[in-house]
């Protein structure tokens, strides 16, 4: 049997997945964007086109405005904290310490937990308790160690809201970021560091001029991964807080679920999906462009 040189065999092999991806990813993306331009805002499908009407309404909707703001706050806090904490942990573990494996696994473990589980646990931890029933969770801990001034309403305080959710997400994903960075650190040739040391660079300078530039592609990749997680975040919010007081922990994905399945606003839900897709593509497209350029 001759495989080499046969043009059709490889195409035959990938056709099923191309068809499947074509239908289930791109097909449904086109279908969703079509729906977002229709009047389908009841259970009965109504494919009358209304142009950008759904989008106009959406941007006038107070809940959606709050959601966009929340997403922005969440993304900034979540991505930067994960990067910083991940890098710090990776650098610490990279010092060839004893029991490295244990620490590595310990830091990575939260990622193995589903968002639903961690959401429920963090809901209990951040439950502020009350004046009458006493402090519980994290607040109780603060009270026990005499840090009373740190106790607060957490996600029940409209001014904190989504930031409390971000803390839970950071807990879950900084270990993962650490793993990415650790791989990056291990990929830096030892000779470079040695050469820098011979040239008289101190630890800090080596880190700044050798390590960081080498980690740049990792950082880039991590931002993409973390960024799209934070734009799509849904399960953590649902399990941990719901919409929160004054929608302070509401996110577009949760609004999409609510308006589609509770309110029967299928077209509005589709518009939110398309806006989310647009936001994610803002992150992904520059990444794809640079990757393809490198490969070409």
């Amino acid at each position: 049997m001759q495989i080499k040189g046969d043009k059709w065999t490889p195409i035959l092999f990938i056709t099923p997945s191309i068809v499947a991806v074509g239908i289930f990813v791109y097909g449904f993306i086109s279908w969703t964007s079509f729906i977002s331009f229709t009047k389908w805002n009841n259970v009965m499908p109504d494919y009358t086109l209304v142009g950008f009407e759904n989008y106009r309404k959406l941007f006038n909707n107070m809940r959606f405005q709050i959601d966009l703001h929340n997403t922005f706050v969440f993304t900034v806090i979540f991505v930067t904290s994960c990067l910083l904490i991940g890098l710090l942990l990776a650098v610490l573990i990279d010092q060839r310490i004893k029991g490295e494996g244990i620490f590595r696994n310990l830091f990575l473990l939260p990622m193995a937990v589903s968002f639903i589980v961690s959401g429920v646990i963090w809901r209990w931890l951040f439950n502020p308790g009350s004046f009458q029933l006493g402090n519980i969770g994290v607040n109780q801990l603060f009270e026990k160690v005499g840090l009373n001034f740190l106790t607060c309403g957490w996600y029940t305080d409209p001014n904190i809201g989504i930031k409390a959710v971000a803390i839970a997400a950071i807990w879950q994903f900084s270990g993962y970021t650490m793993a990415l960075y650790l791989a990056g650190l291990r990929g830096i040739p030892l000779e470079l560091r040695e050469a820098a040391a011979i040239d008289g660079a101190n630890q800090w300078k080596t880190f700044y001029y050798i390590t960081l530039p080498f980690l740049r592609p990792i950082t880039f990749g991590a931002i993409i991964i973390l960024g799209h997680i934070s734009l799509k975040i849904f399960d953590l919010v649902v399990a941990m807080t719901g919409s929160g007081p004054a929608f302070s922990s509401d996110v577009p994905a949760f609004f999409m679920y609510d308006t589609t399945f509770r309110g029967n606003h299928f077209a509005q839900g589709a518009s939110i999906a398309i806006i989310l897709l647009f936001l994610v593509s803002l992150l992904i497209i520059p990444y794809l462009i640079t990757t393809f350029r490198k490969e070409a």
């Binding site: 107070m62 809940r63 919409s243 004054a246 929608f247 509770r262 309110g263 029967n264």
Partner: peptide, 16 residues
């Protein structure tokens, strides 16, 4: 259900 959902959102915001 559409109206109910909107009503619930408005009142839920009003509490805070």
């Amino acid at each position: 259900e559409g109206w109910t959902t909107e009503y619930k959102d408005i009142i839920s915001l009003f509490v805070s």
